[in-house]
């Protein structure tokens, strides 16, 4: 019996040589990116063909004349053979041609270009705020509550972070509007006009991830604070600031940054909802209108941009982590 199990479980254990790891990692990660991009591009292409019934008729409504429908179909290239369309679709991507919106007749690429910056600002600002707020709070709470000290602080922190993390970002947005715009009149309720209009959307988008990141920072920091090398640092009689910031924190943030990288992708997606709460003129408010109006080329464009953004971010995060912590990341890849 035991022998049989051995044979079954005998997976060849490959341990790549240290020198060979980097090219291997880059190759694998690059291949994954390319395949993912291909899946994204193909899925976006197929979307309009997967719509049950006649997408053009659906988009233009029952009142549109058959001539208009035929003309639009021709304009979208939908009467060409599928492979030709696929080829045009891919070629268009390389030339920056994402087609023409059914509703506005404007080029999709131009429409999105104007809105991309607004969405990117929101996502990047929210990411930065989440990380900058979460790491110090998580680390400070860890130092203050380690080894069972200050149980009340620990409980308050755990409770608050769980509740904040449980509230979806758009709801936090509504709550913030109700408090800071409606009740207090401190900040504008919607639109994009200067830094003050950025505060609430960014806060709404950053709150949940910040809560999650603060929790993981605390957990990591607590375990690092028990590490032998922290005892060595204390044996060197360094100041508490040096021990906590110089020795413990750098070893605790890897996990936090890993998670932050993973959350960044979902924060990009989260802009869709938050933008709709605050009427933020980005891609998110665009896609919702486009879906409701069945403006398929426009939806396709937004999906491509969001998808591309997420894929590039994920790849970038993996590479950064590989540089920060070569042993774990590369071995995994």
């Amino acid at each position: 019996m035991a022998e049989v199990v051995l044979v079954q479980g005998a997976a060849p254990a490959r341990t790549p040589r240290v020198a060979g790891r980097w090219p291997r990692f880059i190759l694998r990660r690059g291949a994954r990116l390319v395949v993912s991009l291909w899946v994204l591009v193909t899925a976006a292409f197929l979307m309009i063909h997967l719509v049950p019934g006649d997408p053009v008729r659906a988009a233009l409504g029952l009142t549109a004349s058959p001539e208009t429908v035929a003309a639009t179909r021709a304009a979208l290239g939908l009467d060409e053979p599928l492979l030709t369309q696929y080829w045009d679709h891919i070629r268009g991507l390389f030339t920056g041609d994402l087609g023409v919106s059914i509703t506005t007749r404007l080029p999709v690429a131009a429409t999105l270009g104007a809105r991309l910056a607004a969405t990117a600002t929101l996502a990047v600002a929210a990411f930065a705020v989440a990380v900058v707020v979460a790491i110090p709070i998580g680390a400070a709470v860890a130092v203050a509550t380690r080894r069972g000290r200050r149980r009340h602080l620990e409980a308050a922190f755990a409770g608050t972070s769980v509740v904040i993390a449980a509230i979806p970002d758009f709801l936090i947005g509504v709550l913030l509007v109700a408090v800071f715009s409606v009740a207090l009149h401190w900040l504008p309720v919607a639109g994009m006009a200067g830094v003050s209009s950025l505060i609430l959307p960014v806060a709404a988008l950053a709150a949940g991830p910040a809560a999650v990141l603060a929790r993981i920072t605390r957990v990591e920091m607590l375990s690092v604070l028990e590490a032998d090398f922290v005892r060595t640092a204390r044996a060197k009689r360094l100041s508490a600031v040096r021990i906590n910031l110089g020795h413990a924190l750098p070893n605790a943030v890897t996990a936090t940054l890993t998670l932050a990288g993973l959350l960044l992708g979902s924060m990009v997606a989260g802009t869709v909802l938050v933008e709709n709460v605050f009427a933020w003129p980005g891609l998110g408010s665009q896609i919702v209108g486009a879906i409701a109006a069945k403006d398929y080329p426009l939806v396709q464009g937004v999906v491509l941009v969001y998808g591309l953004g997420v894929l590039l971010i994920n790849t970038l995060v993996d590479c950064v982590l590989a540089v920060l912590d070569p042993r774990s990341t590369i071995a995994e890849a």
């Binding site: 049950p52 992708g265 869709v272 999906v303």
Partner: peptide
């Protein structure tokens, strides 16, 4: 693995379009 790389909301919007 490729599918999970995309945030759920984005996938939901994609399918909602279809």
């Amino acid at each position: 693995n490729i599918a999970v790389a995309f945030p759920g909301l984005l996938l939901a919007l994609f399918f909602a379009t279809i």
